[in-house]
């Protein structure tokens, strides 16, 4: 009898925990969803009086109306994706060689190089953006797309170097030696053996840099505004005057994040399984 009661108490406690976790976790998300479809919502009603997809239509460029204070987010979305793609391309071109070097060679002063790549994670980046703005203003990069790309690359390279070097390090050096021993030059070995084996990790790194660029706020805020309006910038300015429109943008931005969460878990598992061969 005693143990059944104990188990019941434990079950109840666990249920309370589950409900609390779900409420806290999903409450804000639900609030965002409600706001994105609320066409009329007056205090103190628990739910919107009138719901509809008016703001979604407006934001996605399906209807154009000046009445509700929302514009199409498509230009901003397109700009964000373009910036992210360029950022990924340049970042990967820089980080793949660097990650490879850090994983395969004993670099003298390697500690110092590592330090340089770790600093941005350890210290606030805001002062750096502030001073980049000063430099940009002097050389005419302030408020330009290239200026924003450079800032996004800063964020991307730091993570990219870590992921790529860990990826290359996980490839047993014997596999490369074996290729050399059957007659492959260093270049062919890299191209035919190292790169295919590193592909899942490099892809993860590229996706990560892409997502980071899509989401980047602080750097773009300083060096891009008011001329470069990426999606996060648009969300920021909309949240000042139109709750519904801002919520729509926030939900759109949620999509890549959730996709990334799924992908990361898939990729990691694939890597785990594939790395055993």
């Amino acid at each position: 009898m005693h143990s059944t009661r104990k188990r019941l108490i434990r079950l109840t406690m666990e249920l309370v925990l589950l409900v609390t976790v779900l409420l806290v976790l999903l409450g804000p998300v639900l609030s965002l969803v409600l706001w994105s479809i609320a066409e009329t919502w007056y205090w103190p009603h628990a739910l919107p009086q009138q719901i509809g997809l008016q703001y979604w239509h407006q934001a996605l460029g399906i209807h154009v109306s000046l009445a509700i204070g929302a514009v199409s987010i498509l230009p901003a979305l397109l700009l964000s994706i373009s910036i992210a793609l360029v950022t990924v391309l340049i970042s990967m071109a820089i980080t793949i060689p660097a990650g490879y070097a850090l994983s395969k060679y004993r670099v003298p002063l390697g500690g110092l190089v590592l330090f340089l790549f770790l600093m941005p994670n350890a210290f606030p980046q805001m002062p750096v953006f502030v001073n980049l703005l000063r430099i940009y203003t002097r050389i005419g990069l302030a408020g330009t797309v290239p200026g924003v790309v450079i800032v996004h690359m800063l964020v991307g390279i730091v993570f990219g170097v870590w992921i790529t070097s860990a990826t290359f390090k996980s490839i047993p050096p014997g596999l490369q030696d074996a290729a050399r021993s059957v007659g492959a030059t260093k270049l062919i070995t890299f191209w035919r053996i190292t790169l295919p084996l590193a592909a899942p990790g490099l892809l993860a790194s590229a996706v990560f840099v892409f997502i980071k660029s899509l989401e980047e706020f602080t750097g773009t805020f300083f060096v891009g505004l008011p001329f470069v309006t990426t999606l996060p910038m648009m969300l920021y300015s909309a949240s000042g005057y139109n709750m519904q429109f801002a919520s729509v943008i926030a939900l759109v931005m949620l999509v890549p994040s959730v996709l990334f969460m799924v992908l990361v878990q898939k990729l990691l598992r694939a890597e785990y399984v594939g790395g055993m061969g």
């Binding site: 804000p28 639900l30 609030s31 103190p44 996060p232 969300l235 926030a250 931005m253 969460m261």
Partner: peptide, 30 residues
Amino acid sequence: VYKLGIFIPFVVVAQMMRTFLAPHGLLNVT
């Protein structure tokens, strides 16, 4: 499910909190 928050950027979190925690937001209504 707990992992959800890790992947959501701060801008989106901020917008969520603006709607959720507002004086007339969902939390206060509830």
